[in-house]
């Protein structure tokens, strides 16, 4: 079962590298925004796998906070794309 956790780390790292490729090469700002949102959701799963390996709940606190901050960041980037201020 420990091997399966390391395989999971490998697959998640490959997925994160694909997201980073799209962030680096994305032709427009909305494509980069989509990739940033996807990367935030991926890292929540990564934190869950680290918590499973450590057998502690500390990294799930990190995962909850990361999900919250990723959501706020995605909403802020979407408002930025709309061209509005943050107080509307």
């Amino acid at each position: 079962m420990v091997t399966l956790v390391y395989i999971a780390f490998g697959v998640l790292t490959l997925s994160a590298l694909l997201c980073l490729f799209r962030i680096a090469m994305g032709p427009t700002a909305p494509a980069r925004t989509v990739a940033i949102d996807t990367l935030g959701t991926l890292l929540v799963g990564f934190c869950a796998m680290v918590a499973l390996q450590d057998a502690s709940d500390f990294y799930l606190n990190v995962a909850i906070a990361w999900a919250l901050l990723s959501f706020i960041g995605s909403i802020a980037l979407a408002k930025f794309l709309e061209g509005k201020g943050f107080d509307e």
């Binding site: 909305p30 949102d37 959701t41 909403i75 980037l77 979407a78 794309l81 709309e82």
Partner: peptide, 19 residues
């Protein structure tokens, strides 16, 4: 995650259209 991720996707789609 199940509540916020579709909400963020919806906001990004609307922002892309306005962009």
């Amino acid at each position: 995650v199940a509540i916020t991720s579709p909400t963020a996707a919806h906001a990004i789609a609307r922002g892309s259209h306005k962009f």
